[in-house]
Design a protein around this nucleic acid. Structure first.
Lengths: 114, 114
DNA sequence: CCTAAAGTAAACCATATGGTAAAGCAAACG
DNA sequence: CGTTTGCTTTACCATATGGTTTACTTTAGG
């Protein structure tokens, strides 16, 4: 399950930047070219290209070359890995083994004995 | 809404590291001290402390000093900011304005006219 | 054909990140 | 009281990140 780990890494890393989240939210409304995205976010073409590639590697954006333009569109199911992990973690917490109180009690007990 | 942005930044940044996700998942089962967490993840105390602080700043972990121990526990609602954002983005995509096909058509049309 | 537009590549830069080692400090234990 | 134990601080290191500028390529339009 190393693959999973890497996928989550790239997903969360992609989301961990304000600009990238803004771009993704923008692309949720519809496709756009690099220049368009760059203008909308006050950034160099080169800079925007880097962001797009990071989103692409995370599978959150697909791009198509159309003439001299590179059209970017959001990939729907892309956020699922991330939100699945969050949901699973939350569920695990709900069925958690130890509460803080129990943990502290245990500490006390083991402290008295050894 | 700058605050929101910063909260999302710190949340996703906290999640964008394999070790930190492992720690959070571990804490979903119950509380633990720094030494414990450090041992479980083959890392220096100092290293683990850094991770815990990052999780704490993101609001995903609370810690209590108990004697000379610092007990860490997961904060339940913590992942909500992140998963809410993901859900909202997905929803936005579902009602999206432009599809790829429409976008390409528009390009063609505006291309022919000027 | 010539030029402008869109993208790409490469080099560079400042700062952030994930980690370590070493030294210090406070609470327990014997 | 002295010694562990558990944490904390500090300094340090290598690499990654987010951004720029500059130069090059490819397509489109006049």
């Amino acid at each position: 399950m190393v693959k999973q780990t890497q996928a989550l890494d790239s997903s969360f890393k992609a989301l961990a930047d304000t600009t990238r989240r803004a771009v993704l939210l923008r692309l949720a409304d519809g496709p756009g070219g690099i220049t368009e995205l760059a203008d909308e976010h006050q950034m160099t073409l080169a800079g925007m290209l880097k962001h797009v590639r990071i989103l692409e590697e995370a599978g959150m954006v697909r791009t198509v070359k159309h003439g001299r333009r590179r059209i970017c569109e959001m990939n729907a199911g892309s956020c699922d890995h991330a939100s699945d992990w969050l949901a699973a973690t939350r569920k695990r917490w709900e069925n958690r083994f130890d509460s803080m109180e129990r943990y502290l009690e245990e500490l006390e007990r083991s402290g008295r004995r050894g």
